[in-house]
Structures are given as structure tokens and as C-alpha cells.
């Protein structure tokens, strides 16, 4: 009987703790999003590169490859067909 009471207590405390932590997850997430939106400068949208007639699928693959190779720092200026 004592174990049963303790198990019931664990059910209540456990579920409350889980919900409190997940509530904190949402609060922390929202706070970080708001603070970063408010205090960090807007990032410039990269100029659309001159694609030289490369189709969208190939363009996406090139952008992804450059992004991976340069760790997100590289910018495609232009693409020329030879």
C-alpha cells in the first residue's frame, strides 16, 4: 500500500516536472528567438548570382556544394558555361 502511494506520488510529481521542463523549453526557445531577432543585425540576403542559364536543380546542388565546402561562408558570384 505504501509503495502504491509512492508510485502515485511519482506519477504526479514526474508528470508535473516533465511539463515544467517542456514549458521551460518553449520559454527558453521563444526568448532566444526574440532576443536574437531584436538585438542581432539583419543578415543581408545574398545577391542572386548570375547563373548563366543553369537550371534550378543544378543551381541548388552547386549552392549546397559551395555551402558545405566553405562552411557557409562562400558566396557564388557568377556561374559561366564553357
Amino acid at each position: 500500500m505504501e509503495s502504491l502511494q509512492e508510485a502515485l506520488g511519482l506519477l504526479i510529481i514526474g508528470m508535473i516536472t516533465v511539463f515544467i521542463v517542456l514549458w521551460l523549453v518553449t520559454v527558453i526557445g521563444n526568448s532566444v528567438i526574440r532576443l536574437s531577432n531584436r538585438f542581432l543585425p539583419e543578415t543581408k540576403t545574398k545577391d542572386t548570382p548570375r547563373t548563366g542559364g543553369v537550371d534550378k536543380g543544378k543551381m541548388a546542388a552547386i549552392v549546397a556544394a559551395v555551402d558545405v565546402a566553405t562552411g557557409g561562408k562562400g558566396v557564388i558570384d557568377s556561374i559561366e558555361k564553357r
Binding site: T17, V21, V32, L40, T43
Partner: peptide, 25 residues
């Protein structure tokens, strides 16, 4: 809210969350 700086948010989130949860549980 839209997320304007996803990379910053993704870096800050585990640090702050880890700190708060570790103190709580």
C-alpha cells in the same frame, strides 16, 4: 515570430536549456 537568425538560436538554445534543466533536475 519568424526566426531571423536560426544559427545563433540553434547555438544558444542547447547552452541555456542545459543550464536550466540541470539546475531543475
Amino acid at each position: 515570430h519568424e526566426i531571423k537568425h536560426m544559427r545563433v538560436v540553434k547555438i544558444a538554445f542547447p547552452i541555456v536549456l542545459g543550464l536550466v534543466v540541470a539546475v531543475l533536475v
